[in-house]
């Protein structure tokens, strides 16, 4: 029982991180129907920016809370800029090309960014200064670390902020309108290129936050850390119904939970397999996902 509770706590932590990454996939897919392979690398870049900034700020003598907060905000901004640059260089010129071309361009960007990280940051793990936040509390037999509390707290905050942005603001409405009908949104005066760029930036910001939190949680980052979580987060987006924001959050939570439970009760070696099996099963049995609406491309 205590073991289960502990697994659930860990699952929520991990699931929240997957949800943050999945949002980037789902938003970009919703608006330009592209599996943005480079998204996993943006997440990795976020993780690295986190450790770079936290280490520096810490060495300047700032208190841990300031270090964390500032690093989070700056890394999100950095990744937003990075994703906008990638979009502008590698995807925007291909807007009229076949979908395969854009997909391959995305794949190329993913390899490019991953190796760029390797070249500038080295091939070895880089340790996070996790000693900043220590300790935790016991809750019904399960140990909850303060780090987990911070991770879940920040995740919830970001998810709420995103929901407000997308469903309550004028820009959010414009984003949804552009995803549904680009020609018509141009006819009402929406600059779709700007909206697409913004979508990439928001998705990247969330991924950067996720990268930092994973770095804090596991204690280190690596240049190729983006690949597997990237695929899992995409699975989460598909599970929730691609293009659907609420679905991506739900999907991330489910995938994280399943992974932790599978690792705890079945086999930790095969935990990565479960995410892939779920992805394939979902696509086979309910290709529109749990929250899916009319994803079949009859969007008129």
């Amino acid at each position: 029982m205590e073991f289960l509770l502990q697994q659930l706590v860990n699952g929520i932590t991990l699931g929240g991180v997957y949800a943050l990454v999945a949002l980037g996939y789902t938003m970009v897919y919703g608006i330009i129907q592209l599996i943005n392979f480079a998204h996993g690398e943006i997440y990795a870049a976020g993780g690295y920016m986190g450790v770079i900034l936290i280490s520096w700020l810490f060495s300047q003598g700032f208190p841990p809370a300031v270090c964390l907060g500032a690093a989070l905000v700056l890394a999100m901004g950095y990744c937003a800029m990075l994703a906008m640059a990638v979009e502008k260089v590698a995807y925007k010129p291909l807007r009229q090309s076949s979908r395969l071309s854009v997909l391959l361009s995305a794949l190329g960007m993913s390899i490019f960014l991953q190796n760029g990280l390797m070249l500038t940051q080295g091939v070895y793990d880089r340790a996070y200064p996790t000693e900043m936040v220590q300790g935790g509390f016991e809750f019904g037999g399960a140990v909850v670390s303060w780090m987990q509390v911070i991770i879940v707290g920040v995740t919830v905050l970001l998810l709420v902020a995103l929901n407000l942005l997308v469903f309550k603001t004028r820009i959010g409405k414009a984003m949804r309108a552009t995803a549904q009908d680009k020609t018509m949104s141009a006819l009402v005066g929406i600059n779709s290129n700007r909206i697409i760029s913004l979508t990439f930036a928001i998705g990247a910001g969330l991924a950067a936050a996720a990268g930092i939190m994973v770095g804090l949680y596991y204690g280190s980052v690596r240049y190729d850390m983006g690949f597997v979580p990237g695929v899992k987060a995409f699975s989460a987006a598909v599970l929730g119904g691609i293009g659907n924001i609420t679905g991506a959050m739900l999907g991330g939570l489910i995938i994280g939970m399943i992974e932790v439970l599978a690792a705890g009760y079945i086999s930790s070696e095969y935990k990565d397999v479960f995410a892939f099996v779920i992805l394939i099963a979902v696509l086979y049995f309910m290709p529109t996902g749990i929250m899916g609406e009319n994803v079949d491309d009859t969007r008129v």
Partner: peptide
Amino acid sequence: ELYRMFVFGGVMAVMMLFRP
């Protein structure tokens, strides 16, 4: 050697642009 995959990724994206 180190730059191999880096260049390769970049070339892949550039190819899609100029010679798809």
